[in-house]
């Protein structure tokens, strides 16, 4: 749901330059006015009300804010919100809901590929970008594709297993 960026004091330094953007956010055309310097992550979390992408470092180091930009996994903290106009953004909220899980989300639950869960939205979206481009990866390929997503709880073994399980599920013809 599109929402206006919070109105600010006219004198506030943050309010001096804003840009109107129109993007496809989780399948919906969304218009917003965002401060020029805002990252996509700030727009998602502070303005669009989508907090599934997490801020772990705000410096492109941890991957907790990974989202899909035109289908490619990007760190939302390293993309300006203004750059996303006319493009497609998918966050974890656009992938599935607790009632209708995506095969990747289902696989992460089946393999218990999560602990605290803070990095998991980013892990799942990085995995989705991989499987959309390479439907039949091997374990080493999965590990390389997810090497930009840190997990301090240490779920890496099960995450790779879950992605392989999801890949197999996606290849199965719908029954």
């Amino acid at each position: 749901m599109a929402r206006r960026a919070a109105t600010r004091s006219a004198k506030s330094p943050a309010a001096r330059h804003v840009t109107q953007i129109e993007l496809e956010l989780n399948g919906r055309v969304t218009r917003a006015s965002v401060p020029d310097h805002w990252t996509l992550l700030e727009f998602l979390r502070k303005s669009a009300g989508l907090t599934g992408a997490k801020e772990g470092c705000n410096a492109g180091e941890c991957g907790a804010c990974t989202v899909l930009l035109d289908g490619v996994a990007v760190y939302a903290c390293c993309v300006l919100a203004a750059e996303t106009s006319g493009r497609r953004v998918m966050t974890i909220e656009g992938l599935g809901t607790p009632e209708r899980l995506d095969p990747l989300q289902e696989a992460f639950l089946a393999d218990d590929a999560l602990q605290c869960g803070f990095c998991i939205p980013g892990q799942i979206l990085a995995a989705k970008a991989l499987l959309d481009a390479e439907p039949s990866p091997d374990r080493e390929c999965v590990r390389r594709a997810l090497s930009g997503n840190l997990c301090r709880c240490g779920c890496y073994v099960k995450i790779a297993t879950a992605v392989l399980r999801a890949a197999a599920a996606r290849r199965e013809p719908e029954r």
């Binding site: 979390r45 502070k46 009300g49 989508l50 907090t51 599934g52 992408a53 997490k54 801020e55 966050t91 974890i92 909220e93 992938l95 599935g96 809901t97 607790p98 899980l101 989300q105 992460f108 639950l109 089946a110 218990d112 999560l114 869960g117 803070f118 998991i120 939205p121 799942i124």
Partner: peptide, 23 residues
Amino acid sequence: KSLRRVDGPDKVTGAARYTHDVQ
């Protein structure tokens, strides 16, 4: 038994609200 995490669906869908997410 390996019961699935009861809060797992919230965690894999981004519905889980952490302190960082409180607005």
